[in-house]
């Protein structure tokens, strides 16, 4: 309104009128803008549809069970006795084992690539880590099933012998130090699945962390060296504080992947539908492998129950991811250096 008046009042045009910065010029730009916004809306709609349709389909099962859905361990949807207490515990324990193993490895490797490795080697190592992050999960599953399973028994036995007094490492029915104990109680456990998932998520975490470590300001690095710091002193004083957001963000990203991993876990564990807090003992479960196990033989109501389980997994990973991105956004990581 105002601008048209100014435009008509041409005589007093020497009065400074702020130039209007048009983002869009002409018909082509308007179409372009509308199209781009439409793609944004479509993508958002697809992403919203994931949650919406799961909720819609899960409604029947959630309505039938109510709060008991969270506290029941059994999975018998056809007699209306089902819940995600067992599978959710299993999922969290597998992810916990995976993150506990993968984070030290990932942080160490990321620091190694960004600061310790010979310069000529760094680019190759970066490519290798990125390549490893793209190896299909079914390959990790095969390795876990046919290779790791037999070789990890010794470690499991050792852990349960020496640390069996910690409830997490207890194995039922095994006397500590009994050399004749059956090895099969140590297979198909949360621990084995956790190791495999750890190897799967470690490259992803490492790749995120390395990217942040590499951005640590050169001026601050050199300042630390100039003050007489050793390389490890510099890493502790500059790189790690700067990369804290990256470490947390990478960990959470790996945690999100670990929570949702299906095939590798499905191949390794033998599913049980009780809350199984003993990670070394055979038998475990996860939400995603529950879905993969039962999607084929479910009634309509059973499918609704599976959708409810999927919804729970979806919300869990979403919460983890939002936490990760807000932590990463708030930290100094990724900020440009002034030096």
């Amino acid at each position: 309104m105002v601008s048209t008046q100014v435009a008509s009042g041409r005589p007093e045009s020497d009065r400074p009128v702020p130039r209007r910065l048009y983002a869009a010029r002409g018909f082509g730009d308007r179409v372009f803008r509308i199209q781009l916004t439409a793609t944004g809306v479509v993508v958002l709609a697809v992403m919203a549809a994931v949650g919406l349709f799961l909720l819609l389909r899960a409604g029947q099962a959630l309505h039938a069970r109510g709060f008991a859905f969270l506290t029941t361990a059994a999975w018998q949807p056809d007699v209306h006795n089902f819940g995600i207490a067992a599978v959710l515990t299993g999922t969290l324990l597998i992810a916990l084992v995976a993150v506990t193993i993968s984070v030290p490895l990932a942080v160490g490797t990321a620091l190694f690539i960004s600061d310790v490795a010979p310069r000529g080697l760094r680019r190759t190592l970066v490519s290798m880590v990125d390549l490893m992050a793209a190896v299909p999960s079914v390959v990790y599953g095969l390795w876990g099933l046919f290779f790791l399973q037999q070789h990890v028994i010794g470690l499991s036995r050792w852990l349960s012998d020496w640390f069996g007094w910690i409830p997490l490492f207890t194995v039922d029915g095994i006397q500590p130090g009994d050399p004749l104990a059956s090895a099969s109680v140590y297979t198909a456990s949360t621990f084995v699945a956790g190791i495999v998932v750890a190897l799967m998520v470690a490259p992803i975490q490492c790749s995120v962390m390395r990217e942040v470590f590499a951005q640590a300001p050169a001026g601050e690095r050199e300042g630390a060296y100039a003050l007489g710091a050793t390389r490890w002193g510099m890493i502790r004083a500059v790189v790690l504080p700067y990369g804290k957001g990256g470490i947390i963000g990478g960990t959470m990203l790996g945690l999100g992947r670990a929570l949702g991993e299906t095939i590798a876990v499905y191949l390794i564990i033998s599913p049980v539908f009780t809350i199984q807090p003993h990670i070394l003992q055979t038998g475990s479960n996860s939400v995603s492998s529950l879905i993969a196990l039962h999607y084929g033989d479910s009634s309509e109501f059973g499918m609704s129950a599976l959708m409810a389980a999927g919804l729970a997994l979806f919300l869990l990973t979403l919460a983890v991811n939002f936490t990760a991105s807000s932590v990463a956004a708030r930290s100094r990581s990724g900020a440009q250096s002034e030096a």
Partner: peptide, 28 residues
Amino acid sequence: RFSRFVRTIVEAMTALPSIVAGLMVYAV
């Protein structure tokens, strides 16, 4: 504001469990 919102959602979805994507297409 809208594109910032879309970016947040997309970033949160990068670690969408693949089985959930399968379930969603199965449901729809």
